[in-house]
Design a protein around this nucleic acid. Sequence first.
DNA 1: TCAGATTCTGGCCGATCGGTCAGTACCGTT
DNA 2: AACGGTACTGACCGATCGGCCAGAATCTGA
Lengths: 185, 185
Amino acid sequence: MTLHDDLRDIALHEFASAGYAATSLQRIADLAGTSKASVLYHFESKERLLAEIVSPALDDLEQLIGSIADAGGIGRADFVERFVDLLLQHRQVVPLVINQGATLDDVPVMHRATELMRRVAELFRLASGSTLEKLRFGVAFGGVAYTLAAAERLGLNGEIPIDEVRSALLEILHDLLVPADFRTA
Amino acid sequence: MTLHDDLRDIALHEFASAGYAATSLQRIADLAGTSKASVLYHFESKERLLAEIVSPALDDLEQLIGSIADAGGIGRADFVERFVDLLLQHRQVVPLVINQGATLDDVPVMHRATELMRRVAELFRLASGSTLEKLRFGVAFGGVAYTLAAAERLGLNGEIPIDEVRSALLEILHDLLVPADFRTA
DNA sequence: TCAGATTCTGGCCGATCGGTCAGTACCGTT
DNA sequence: AACGGTACTGACCGATCGGCCAGAATCTGA
């Protein structure tokens, strides 16, 4: 593990738990046993450090959205499964985007995150459904993402196997979303 | 409307949209057309300003939790309805607590918010249920709270009548939670 | 009119922030 | 041994923050 990777992992943990604004480069350096100047040597700015942490997850989400658009639509169940897998795979950065995305939209990488979430909403034609449909979508995806984000904080399901979490989330989302529209596109 | 109330409302809006840490007392003063010193005259510190904004909602939540404990339990459907009403009534402060509670737990009033959320979880015996039960609870309440928090940000349901939102949320929560346990206590 | 609160302000303070820079230590290569 | 590039550091900078304070302005009741 290089110092570069160490710094990125430490910053991710601190950004997610204490918040981006509240985490100083000095603290990251202290936790890594190095100097603040060396952090700025590996990452040219604090924003670039955040971008390097968040971007991979956004790349995957963008690819998922794009593949669905290219294929001319996809079944809801398929999207739900792929979306849950994406959230679980990047579950460390989910709290960062979910909890601090609104606060940090002046940071380019977070603005990108917001736009991608908006595209996900459009995929489900959120704007055209009934109020019940809109809110059902919001509660479902927002609930899954927020639950993953809050799980560690409230001391919940920290030791639950990921496979079990995955199957449970899929069942919940299926119950919430699929009955509302049986068509596959 | 007194300057005191003006400052509180402006601060609430800025804290919720830009974030507590990113909102300076100077900016609050500028938006209110007064000086930073006068803000600190009406509220002796930035933390007290936050506390004055958040506390009423927490008082109501604490009362709701207490009344349920005193009555020796309450039906899930009853609690769900009262909880949704509480969220809707204080819907301006919900984003603040939801999105920034984890980041600001060193601030006493936000730590109190976290503890209350934990008590709500205990009310539903969250720790003793199956993984599916736990996550179902998390998705349900987290989803409702987060959806209300994110609605304005993503430009969703801003113009939907509150009554319609209320009934839709109640139906969604009922679908998610009540079937899991038909008993009323 | 005038004394006493109440309200409000400009100026200042120490602390902390992200970021810069000159210079040092360490490295493999020739 | 001499070299050039990479990794790293301490010291410093300007900006901004929350908070403090002496005093001015405004209001109120006698």
